[in-house]
Design a protein around this nucleic acid. Structure first.
Length: 580
RNA sequence: GUGCCCGUAGCUCAAUUGGAUAGAGCACCAGCCUUCUAAGCUGGGGGUUACAGGUUCGAUCCCUGUCGGGCACGCCA
């Protein structure tokens, strides 16, 4: 059978255009699926596009095109309708032929070579390892993982990467927060800063250190409050005070600071990795920000910018001339105190990404980072790298609703809902599916009660249920799908059957579009529609009938549906249960 | 204040990127289990696509303006 009707039909039309000759217009032949059955299976608006250039009525052009088109064994008829649409009706036999293809290819059905095996990197989640992942990260995780799967199936060679922010101030705050909690366990009471990490997990880490090393890391904290404006203050709550506290802690702890720092990093990163793994989200590379400093890549990137005269000094800091490349203001890369900014390491990181020979680099960011895009692209331009190779997919916030009201979240206060809690509450399947049900640039209202409900309100179960039903029917028959390979598919002529077959044919194309548009939500919608058409078919038609050829044909159809459902769910990281 | 995103059925969202009569789910109403899983199916009502202009064969989509909502505007990450 044909692997791609759209390409095939546009080929026919291209022949027709060439036949007619002397059309000096940009021909962009686009074949679209129709929405209504009266319009056939596929339609093309080429005649309308050509109307102006050819100075003719679109319907007239359409007629010429159709007449010039070579005849096809797959096309039942061609109609000209409306303003000049060319509508194609595909023969039943051509649709029926898809079933053996699906069964033959099995879980490989839907794989295409659209991506031409090009290297593509998807960097996602990349949350600071300073605490548990929350529901906001969950959306990035689900979206990124699904997108990576979709890209892979569409023929790209995909690398999944997590950028670990293990070098910054936030890590220091976490280390000190943990140490202060640890001191408290050793009965040394010091005020706990308001802007330190308040979460319970910090106390848990302190307890682990305490259990393993008892008072090994207790250092008398007399100098802890040196340099603070009010040493007797019961509370510390400005950034300056916290930074001073960190500096003091580093001094007091000496060599031991590295242990604390490393311990909390390892602990949090491990927790994060496990959390994601349980969520079905895995990475090929965990890229350390610290390694950029250790390997001199940050200094190297700065040197390159310096050579290209894109840096200057002002007020003791080093600035990058991002305004030269379209940014609204110049940005500091090295602070007055000699510390590089996060932006500096990010420039080095992106330089490194580009040196790793990817055709395309995709960053998945929270939508609150949109203002950050121009400066990163500016840096790429300054380094004479093609900013077009970097694609940024922004993911809007997920707002959690429980009992109709918002669940708040704030990392510092420790009041957020963690991804782990969410997964425990609604299950991995529902969480993965709900996260990608919406277009990524759309705010997501995550209704916990709906995700939990085991009823018709829940789209996850709807799709899974279709799969389980098919498994059940096949089990009651023989369960050997291989025996169906030669079923007489010409017996499947009912509208509901042809509709399902057309849907199956759409699957590979849906994946390509989802890959092109970075829109895994299309897969979720596709699955709901396929499931819906199946449920409807199930209720109207009995499969295990005494007419053996008819039974086998119908079973072949639902077996094909089973494969595609399973395959689509797998793309989204959702399980396909055999019974429910 | 400036920039980016968004505004579609009572609610949550689609709409093949400019196509034909704007579609689903939930909620609501009325039906369907002695037969392969009722976590299902069938039917019904529900819309000036925020508003006003513009561009063209054709606009939810592109342009301008207004109103409303979100986010970002650090020598934070």
């Amino acid at each position: 059978m044909l692997s791609n009707f759209k390409d095939y039909l546009s080929g026919l039309l291209l022949d027709a255009v060439n036949q007619l000759g002397t059309i000096n217009a940009d021909v962009n032949i686009e074949i679209a699926r129709t929405k209504q059955a009266e319009h056939g299976d596929y339609s093309c608006n080429l005649a309308m596009q050509l109307a102006k250039a050819m100075r003719k009525n679109p319907r007239e052009i359409a007629t010429l095109l159709v007449e010039a088109m070579p005849s096809s064994p797959y096309v039942q008829k061609i109609e000209i309708a409306g303003a000049g649409f060319i509508n194609f009706f595909i023969k039943n036999s051509a649709k029926q032929a898809c079933l053996s293809v699906v069964l033959q290819q099995g879980m490989a059905y839907g794989v295409s070579d659209f991506g031409e095996n090009k290297n593509i990197q998807v960097e996602f989640v990349s949350a600071n390892p300073t605490g548990p992942l929350h529901v906001g990260h969950g959306r990035g995780a689900a979206f990124g993982a699904s997108l990576a799967n979709v890209l892979s199936m569409a023929g790209f060679s995909v690398e999944r990467e997590y950028y670990v922010n293990d070098a910054g101030r936030q890590m220091d705050i976490l280390a000190v927060s943990t140490w202060l909690r640890y001191l408290a366990l050793n009965n040394i009471q010091v005020p706990f800063p308001e802007n330190a990490y308040q979460g319970e997990y910090v106390k848990v880490m302190a307890r682990l250190i305490h259990e393993a090393h008892v008072d090994r890391y207790v250092h008398q904290p007399e100098q802890l409050f040196d340099g603070l404006t009010d040493p007797l203050a019961k509370s510390i709550n400005t950034d300056e005070e916290l930074d001073q506290l960190i500096a003091n802690a580093k001094l007091i702890l000496g060599q031991d600071y590295a242990y604390i720092h490393n311990f909390v990093l390892t602990e949090q990163l491990g927790d994060c990795r496990n959390d994601l793994m349980e969520f079905g989200v895995t990475f090929d590379t965990w890229f350390s920000e610290q390694s950029l400093f250790d390997n001199g890549l940050v200094a190297h990137a700065m040197q390159l910018l310096e050579e290209k005269q894109c840096l200057y000094r002002q007020d003791g800091a080093v600035w990058f001339r991002s305004t030269d490349f379209g940014d609204e203001k110049d940005r500091v890369v090295q602070r007055e105190n000699g510390q590089y900014t996060y932006f500096a390491s990010d420039i080095a990181y992106h330089l490194n990404k580009f040196e790793r020979d990817f055709e395309t680099v995709i960053n998945i960011w929270g939508a609150d980072h949109h203002g950050y895009i121009p400066r990163v692209k500016a840096a790429l331009q300054a380094l004479e790298l093609n900013p077009e190779k970097l694609k940024i997919a922004l993911v809007q916030f997920a707002v959690l609703y429980r009992d109709g009201k918002k669940a708040s979240m704030s990392t510092r206060s420790g009041e957020f809902v963690t991804l782990r809690e969410l997964r425990e509450e609604v299950g991995n399947d529902a969480a993965r599916f709900f996260y990608v049900m919406r277009k990524s640039d759309q705010h997501l209202d995550f209704d916990l009660d709906l995700a939990k409900s085991r009823s018709n309100e829940n789209p996850v179960y709807y799709v899974q249920y279709a799969h389980a039903r098919i498994c059940s029917v096949l089990k009651q028959w023989d369960d050997d799908v291989a025996k169906l390979m030669n079923a007489d598919v010409s017996l499947l002529t009912h509208v509901s059957e042809l509709t399902i077959m057309q849907r199956l044919i759409d699957f590979p194309d849906t994946i390509v579009v989802a890959a092109q548009e970075f829109s895994p939500h299309l897969i979720a919608f596709y699955l709901r529609e396929l499931a819906s058409e199946f449920h409807s078919y199930y209720n109207s038609t009995h499969f295990l009938v005494s007419d053996i050829p008819l039974m086998e044909a119908r079973l072949m159809l639902i077996a094909a549906v089973q494969f595609v459902l399973k395959n689509g769910l797998k793309l989204l990281g959702v399980s396909a249960p055999e019974k429910m």
